[in-house]
Write a protein that binds this DNA or RNA. Structure first.
Lengths: 233, 233
DNA sequence: GGGCAGAATACATCCGATGACTTGGCTCGG
DNA sequence: CCGAGCCAAGTCATCGGATGTATTCTGCCC
């Protein structure tokens, strides 16, 4: 079907060409439809599709706007797609995460501000003695999110956040079934934070590698033992 | 707006839960609309949005199907989003590519079949003596695509393909403005192929790093000299 | 058995109408 | 003069139905 797809492409081109800048408001549905030579319904399908991947922001009663288009917007969109991957590819996502996370951690050792490094320690402290598994995983995600952001590369941070979401359930599962996992996670977080504080990129990177590889190895072993995959959902 | 968004989410959940498996055909628009309790128009918006990111495959006169959902489908969807990033983030994409590409090349040194390694040599040979810039870039992309695929990690391959698309224009630009770039690219490709053939992961990885870093450094220098960004479009 | 015409099926597109939400201005009381 | 609340305009949300178009299947004809 050419018509609606054309519309999607035209809007995309308007943005790429700069005719529509981030924050700009689009013409009314009716006007834009006329402009592009199609009906309002067809245009709406195009707009909806672009809104799903966060390119457009539709506000009822107000209008439709172009989003910031910052790399950060990649996260949600990619996460949506990533959610649909089957469990069979969790290992692949973990493998990718093992490539990205240490790199980001290394960069963060150079670039993270002293305040933010201290903030990481506070974050870890906030967990208390015997946190719930839920709180732990939440804390885990926030810890890595902050480090990814501190890498100074928004694209990298977005990708990490996206693929991490996919491995989330695996981490919960591990916490439930492997007693030592919780303590080990906490220890490794401490070690990473310390390396960041001491501005040792290589050490921070190594700990990050170990950290992700731990989950990966556990999952590999679990899958091999079980003979098939655990229900990660 | 809850209604259409709900529909998107419901379809997504049907897929995640397994009620809709890859390859399955969805009920007719009218039926599904009734099932989900909304009008055909609204449903169509939801379907269109999911089709844009390759989750659904709509065939006029036939029906709507769930795609394979293989990690490979990530590529097109992510590329679409990546296309919309502004030139300012090209460096960030290159930085990420510099993380992923060497890793994939290293893996390929272990996993690529002998035939495929030989095929890489053929691919490079096919360029001839003095290729056009267009042919070179095309050849360049195919070369890296094959290596990425050979990593055995489809998620990794998809991500590489996505971010590489974004750096494509930068590479063309470099070929146009830096005389030595063409010869250097060819040399580095040869070196990577050779390392793969000799099953030297570390060497292959190093050359891949150098290869990407070359573009990156050139772009950094160019941006610094120009004081602003070249028009990469 | 093969090919073609036509029916059946399903998506594509459009139109017009009505509802719902947001914003901003305007009125009115303090 | 200022603020609260009301009101109207603008815009998207949703619907139902009608018509066009592409694909597939079926059955007839050769």
């Amino acid at each position: 079907m050419a018509l609606t797809d054309d519309a999607i492409d035209k809007i995309k081109q308007m943005i790429i060409s700069g005719r529509l800048a981030p924050g700009d408001r689009l013409p009314r549905e009716a006007d834009l439809a006329t402009q592009l030579g199609l009906s309002r319904n067809s245009l709406r399908e195009a707009v909806r599709a672009l809104a799903l991947i966060n390119v457009l922001d539709v506000r009822q009663g107000d209008g439709t706007y172009v989003t910031s288009l910052a790399p950060g917007m990649l996260t949600e969109a990619i996460s949506f797609i990533v959610d649909l991957q089957h469990d069979g590819s969790v290992l692949e996502f973990l493998e990718v995460r093992r490539l990205l996370e240490p790199a980001a951690t290394s960069l963060a050792a150079y670039r993270m501000s002293d305040e933010d490094v201290a903030g990481l320690a506070d974050l870890l402290d906030s967990l208390g003695e015997s946190p719930t598994l839920e709180a732990l995983v939440e804390n885990d995600q926030e810890f890595h999110r902050r480090i990814a952001r501190a890498s100074g590369n928004d694209v990298l941070a977005s990708l990490i956040e996206s693929v991490s979401g996919r491995t989330h359930r695996a981490r919960v599962w591990r916490g439930l079934t492997q007693d030592s996992a919780v303590a080990r996670t906490l220890d490794e977080h401490r070690a990473i934070q310390l390396a960041l504080a001491q501005r040792q990129p290589d050490v921070a990177q190594a700990y990050a590698s170990v950290h992700v590889a731990g989950v990966e190895q556990w999952l590999r072993r679990t899958l091999a033992e079980a003979g098939d995959q655990p229900n990660l959902g």
